[in-house]
Every structure is written in structure tokens, then in C-alpha cells.
Design a protein around this nucleic acid. Sequence first.
RNA 1: GGCGGGGUAGCUCAGCCGGUUAGAGCGUGAGAUUCAUAACCUCAAGGUCGCGUGUUCGAGCCACGCCCCCGCUACCA
Length: 723
Amino acid sequence: MIDDQAQTPDPQPPTPDTFYVTTPIYYANSAPHLGSLYTTIIADTLARFHKQKGSETYFLTGTDEHGVNIERRAIERGLAPQAYVDDVVRQFKESFAQFGVDTEHGGYDIFMRTTAAFHYQGVSRLWRTVRAARTPKGNEPIYKNFYEGWFCAACAAFKTEDEYSKPESDEDAPRCLVHLTALDRVAEESYFFRLSDYADTLIELYEAKPSLIQPEARRNEVLSFLRSGLQDLSISRLVSSNSWGIPVPDDATHTIYVWFDALSNYITAIGYGNEERETVAGFEKYWQHVTHLVGKDILRFHTVYWHSFLLAAGLPLPEVVYAHGMLLDRDGRKMGKTLGNTIELDILHKHFTNDAIRYFCLREVVFGQDGRVGYEAMIDRTNSDLASGLGNLAARTLTMINRYCGGIIPNGELKEADYIHARRAGVQPDALELASTVELARDQYVQLFESYQFSRALEVAWSIIARIDKFISDAKPWELAKDETQRQTLNVVLYRAAETLRWLAVLLAPVMPDATDALWRQLGLSMDSTTHAHRINPRSLKWNGLTEGTKINASEAIFPRLDKTKIMNDIETDITSNQTAAPPTETTSAIAEDKSALPSSPASSADALPEGVASFITIDDFIKVEMRVGQILTAERVPKADKLLRFTVDVGESEPRQILAGIAEYYEPETLIGRRIAVVSNLAPRKLRGFESQGMVLAASVEGGRPVLATFTEDVPNGARLK
RNA sequence: GGCGGGGUAGCUCAGCCGGUUAGAGCGUGAGAUUCAUAACCUCAAGGUCGCGUGUUCGAGCCACGCCCCCGCUACCA
């Protein structure tokens, strides 16, 4: 039955003719990390999605390369600032190329750099335009005043709140976190932007257009910030404080300070203030449909500040500013060098395909919310959704077409004479119901994608996979194949499955360009650039698009299953060798020094670890592990499990514990009864083969993985704690 | 402190304007099956819906109080 409740989409969906998406330009004081890759992958996917729908798209990413922090970092390395940022940019570009989001692989259209000459031109023009304008309250937007702040003489820089330690009392001055010296209260001449005059205007605009700032919760935060009133913003520094920046037009004693410089990149990149760029990209063409993707931590700068600058310059505001969440480790903690819980891009790249990473970023992490990321979760996702889901569906379908139809897409139409056979096999004679289900899912998918709900969109796509998996299981083509009278029913079943795969390839092309490419080829479809999956508007998909008689291509797994144990072990090894790698030869860590690292902890990550030790833990970490003496009371094999033994162990509690251990290949259960062993007693219980294991037995692992149980040679009471 | 968002199955979360046996995915267990990547299909497990009081014929969904968690509360990308 057709779901006629479904909203019929407009006959000609209003596709904007252009789409411009930006990531933030990443601060060039360190090598790229997972956070920058994440945003860039989302932007890349969005760009591909809109391109697929027929829009002209422009995708910007890049680096912000000015400021005292960078200048200082360059000096530390004995480099000129320009040489230093050139090197960082090289790393960014290499990394982005590895993950397939560069121009070469169909990714970004420009890698924007604030040190580009045309950017200097554009920023200068913006400054002059703003300077000549008037605020909504009739004032000059830019004026000279004194910027007062906490200044570190040793750093020769002003310090922000998170760069100094708060004083014990109000009497004392805060201290520099780098030098531990007291900071001076210093005032320096600076140009100010009259931000305070824009609050009311912004509130009105934001209330009139709720979609401008998303998600809604973030929009509320911005509004509440605006309602609390704005202070003017210092937008320049004396050259003596910061020489590494763009000079203030007509005043060589100042450089333009951070935000005014950095945010402007989004317009200078497409031609604001430079005719050559205007020709390459097109300010008029793209600025009207720009989407800024930003981390939630920099949302305010991309709304309040940036929009005020644009208003002052008489330019239109962006269409959407979307704040995404932060990526956290698997326990929900912030990733950091100090915790050693970061996801390293080189390790990521080594063990996962780009498609799997992209899928994970869009499916596992709810866009707009913080997300937990871990290698283990990535493997699980890849195996359950990609290998067992889409990959397996493709494999079983294509294998059967090969086996039963000679590798040719069969005829998908049933003649009326065949209806009775089809019905007998439980197959609907016409494809109406299936087609309308898939169409409805397609509509939902596109709609969700357009509203940035990638995770839910992919859930919908996967409901199609489940639908076809069930369809195949119910129709049982392998049985139809044994019955000559069911020849055409078999054809129809396989046609419908293959046709659905074609739809999936189109829907998922922006998310997983490589895999959908492979699927497309395997289906025997045209790799021609105009008829390829990544060029087909999902809204224009029509059922029965597969041509009978098309030769499919020999299939190989689109998403090979990952060996979780092996990969986790390999990753463990990689992490260890990364940590012990000598810093001097390793540019990444040399410049990626964590700015929040306290000088009071002289121990750096470069400290040598004893041979064979992966990393140090603190005594606090150790105390979390509770180990006790236990005595094995019973021991037996677990049925249908060749490696598992099931014990009951007395660990000094009122009831003995049930503990399972994978040592059945090496120990006879009877020989173990009565033995005293070491047990981890506060391990979270886990079910294995239907039995809950309430702890872990400790054993040495020797050659070939053979376990040797830890035992005691002296008398010890059950339950005694190991320390 | 102020403003905002949350606390629902082991985990991650859906639950629209309050209405019969509270849902999904993953994980777990059982069954069936063999086209397929230990896959796919079927079934199951029984969660005081943070706590309390109240409104109502009826509350996870409303009101009040309490407990806990998170975000924002400005010049750093």
C-alpha cells in the first residue's frame, strides 16, 4: 500500500543555484588534528551533496596565519613566520589529501590563507569601507582608544583569561602561565570597533530569521549574550606588540587584530576587494548562499562579531551559521595531549578507510552535539553498518545475479501469467509498494540532509537496507532458482534488489564517495562523469532505472569486515611507538605543543619511558583496579565454546563469584580446582556465552599467547587485596 | 549567582498538541536459514520513564518543590 500521507515534494524542487560552504580557517599554530578533519569532512559532504543536486558549489577551508602566538612559535623554531606557516600549511594540505577532502579528490575549492596577497587587499578594503560607514546609531564604527589588559613583559603580549592564573586575592596581579611572573596592567593605543551599537539590530535580525543560527540551543545562547549588552571590540594592536599581521590602512603603527582579519577571509576568498578572485569564484554569486560550519566554541565570533562587521560594511549576512559539537574521547572526556587520549590522524588513516571515517563522523556523532569517538566504536560501526549492512547486501545481491542470471541484470517486469507464481513465493507481483517505500525514504533522507540531520538521514537510508535484506530473505531466491516455473519471479526479486542498490549508491555518494563509486561500477553502471552516481540528483531518481541486460562487474567486498582484536592490538602498538618517537625528527609534535600545558610540570611527553612500557599511569589510575586473591571452587568447560572455562571463585565474599576465562585450550578444568589465583574484582560484569563473568583471572601471556595463571607460593587468605 | 538544555531498557537515544500492553539501533540470549562479509531473517529479554507532591477520568509528556548532569555568562583560532 502506498503511504499517501507522504508529502508530495514540489514537482520542481527549489534547488538554490549556488551553495558556498566554509569551515573555520584553522589556526596555524599546530598540525591538523581530528577536530579540523571533522569539520572539513562535514563541509566536504555538504558540498558534494549540493553539487549532486545540481548547485554550483564552492567549498572553502584554510588557515589563519597571523598573530603573536604564531610569531612566537616561529621564533622558537628559528624560522621566519612565513616559513613557519608555510610548513604548517603543507602539513594541513598533505593531511587533507590523505583523507580525500582536497581539490584533487573532489574536495575543497580553495585552501584559504590569511597571508595571501589578495586577502590583504580585501581586508584593507573592508576596513576602509567600515571606517567610512555609520553604525545603526549614527556613530563611527571604528575609533581610537586604549586597550587595557594584563601584559606579560617576558612574552611581550597581552594575556587572555585562560592564559594567566587567577590571583589569590584581588590585591595581587595574575601570573603568566608561561613565565610565572606577575603581569602588568598595561594600556595600549588601539582601534576599536563599536560593537555595542549593533546588539539591537542583531537581536532583531536573529529573531526574524531563526534558521540563521543553528542548532536552536546555540542560537538561544547567542541571543542571551546579546541581551546582556555588548562591549566594543579592540581590533588592532601596535606593531610593537604584534608585527605579524595585516597593517591597518593608513596607519602603519598598527596591525589588524585577529577576528577582523580572520573572519574576513570568507569574503576575500571569493572576490571581495580583488577582481582576480572575483573572476575565479564570484562574490555576488556565492555570498548569498553561504553556510558557515563552526565549532560551538567559536560560534559567537562567527555571529555577533562577524555579522556586525558585515552590517557595518553594508554586506548581507550569511544564510546559515551552524555550530557543531566537540569530539570527545570514548569516555566523554576532552581529548588532549596531557591525557594522551587523542585520536591521531596518522593512526586513523592507517587503519580506516576514508569512507568509514566519513560515515562514522556523520552517523555516530549527532551533528550539533558533542560526540564520543574511539577506535573501538569506529570498528563496531564499520562492521555492523557497513560490512554487515550495506556491504553484505551488495555482496549477496551481486553474487546471486552472477550465479543465477549469468552476471546480467535480469528483466524486472512480471507478466500477468507469472503473477500466480510470484504470489506463491510471497512476492508482490508489482513493485509499487517497494518502490514507494524507497521513494518515501529517499524524500526523508534528502529532507533530513538538507536540515543538517545527517545521523537521522543515514538511519533512514539504513532502513532501506533492512527492508531489502528482509525482502530477499522472504523471497528466498536460492529456492526459486531450483524451480524452473519461478524463473521470472527470481529475476524480479534480483532486479528489485539491484535497483535498490542503485538508489543507495546515489543517496550515499556524498557521504562515501569511494565505496559508492565501487558499488556503481559493480552494478555495471556508467562511470561517465555526467551519469555517475555523484551527478544524479537523488530527487530525480526513478524506479526501474536499471537497464535489463547490463553486465555487472565481478564483485569484491565494498566494506571488508575489520578484525577488531587485531586492529586494536595494532593501534595499541602504533600509539606506543608514536609516544616514544623522538621529537626532533617529528615535526608534528614539535609544533603541536599544547598551549595549556603548565610549566610547573617539567615532565614533558618526551620523557623517556622504561623499555617496554607503553605509557605511565598515576597511582590514582592504579588504585582504580581492585585485585584480590581468589580460590577456584569449581571449574568446567562452557558448552559450545572451545576456549572458555567457567569458574566459581571465592574472593572472600559471602557468595563465590562466577568468572569466565578463555584458557580452556591450555588447562584442564579439574586440575585447577582449589588453586589460589589473582583476580581483578571490580571489572564491570560482562556476559559471555550466556554466563555473566564477574571478574577477570590474571595470567601471564607467553609464547603464542599461551596463558600461565598467576599464583601464590605462600599461604594467603581468600579476598586479600593485591597492592 | 543569572539564563538555557537535560536526567527513559547494559550502551546511545526516539517519544508530536497528556490517552489503550513505553519504542529504535547497538549489545546480549534463543531459533530458523545458507544467496551473502561468523552474514541475513524471526523471537525474547521485562526499564520505580531522576525524587516527591499536585492537576486530571487518565501523565514519561502539564504545575510546584527537591536532587544530579551539561552548556552560555565576551575580546583565544
